[in-house]
């Protein structure tokens, strides 16, 4: 078989797997920004926080990173609720979210990065699990590495779970309602701030879980979070603000596009892809692929 064709197939497969991971990275932004209109640019800081917590537990206790963050998810949820409370009291309630609120999250992003830098330094950190290393072959030319495959599976499961939660449970439907019409929500007998706190807590949980995936997929250092800012917002906007199926679709498109770029132009160009997609979407179809 042709070498280029081989590369192409492998790039597509790797891209889809990467896309599954990007869905986990971005789903929280689709909830926070797309549904709640909270521009949490500090989202990557919580991803990296998840990575480092998974790392500490893995190095000291040998626990699987994904298991760690799932077990600790109530703590991340509480952190998210606390963050939203702060944001609501200081900015949203006073109608100052557009400037002060943005600067606030930017400060949090920055503090997160510098604090981790002070504690852990600039060294790359890695974890040990049985599925880092091995890979399995589908055909003679295509092989899938387990360190990408496991996060992909868990990520898709998480996205599906959130979609089910949003459409099938009362709290989930309240979150969807808050994104459309706060008055309608009050008629349903729910407090918008309460609902938003739950949704924001959920978005921070997904960030931490994505952080565990991240450190499984690649070594992590504090400033790596910056690369994900462009990605999460590109996926959120391309998918259509607040659309969960759209997020999954857009994440896979981004994953394949980056994988192609890395294969055919070199990995150093990959960070530019998300920005290109973001600008193109804003210019051509600001409502996104599956936008309302």
């Amino acid at each position: 078989m042709d070498v280029t064709f081989n590369l192409l197939i492998n790039a597509i497969v790797a891209g889809i797997l990467l896309g599954g991971f990007y869905a986990a990275v971005s789903i929280g932004i689709s909830v926070a920004f797309g549904m709640l209109d909270i521009v949490n640019i500090a989202h990557p800081a919580f991803i990296i926080l998840g990575s480092y917590i998974a790392y500490i537990v893995n190095v000291n206790l040998g626990v699987d990173p994904i298991v760690t963050v799932v077990v600790l998810s109530p703590a991340f949820f509480a952190l998210g609720v606390a963050m939203y409370r702060w944001y609501y009291v200081a900015f949203e309630r006073r109608g100052r979210e557009s400037l002060s609120g943005l600067a606030f999250f930017f400060g949090i992003l920055f503090i997160g990065e510098v604090a981790l830098l002070l504690v852990f330094g600039v060294d790359y950190r890695t974890v040990n699990t049985p599925y880092i290393g091995p890979s399995f072959a589908i055909t003679s030319n295509i092989s899938i590495s387990m360190r990408l495959f496991v996060p992909f599976l868990v990520s898709v499961a998480m996205v599906l779970a959130i979609q089910l939660y949003m459409t099938k449970t009362f709290a989930g439907r309240c979150i969807l309602a808050v994104s459309q019409n706060q008055t309608a929500l009050q008629l349903m007998g729910a407090n918008p701030q309460h609902i938003k706190a739950i949704a924001f807590g959920l978005s921070i949980v997904t960030a931490a879980v994505a952080g565990a995936f991240l450190i499984v997929i690649q070594p992590v250092e504090p400033s790596i979070g910056r690369e994900y800012i462009g990605r999460v917002f590109a996926v959120c906007v391309l998918g259509g603000m607040g659309s969960i199926p759209g997020t999954l679709l857009a994440a896979i498109i981004l994953g394949v596009a980056e994988s192609f770029t890395a294969t055919f132009y070199g990995p150093s160009w990959a960070p530019a892809v998300s920005f290109g997609i973001l600008l193109l979407t804003l210019a051509v179809r600001p409502a996104g692929l599956l936008g309302r």
């Binding site: 557009s98 943005l102 462009g230 150093s268 960070p271 600008l279």
Partner: peptide, 21 residues
């Protein structure tokens, strides 16, 4: 307006990529 903020955040990273290459 918030898209401008997000785009500028991503822009710095892309320009960085450009210069690195």
């Amino acid at each position: 307006g918030v898209f401008f903020a997000i785009a500028t955040l991503a822009m710095a990273i892309v320009l960085h990529t450009l210069v690195v290459n």
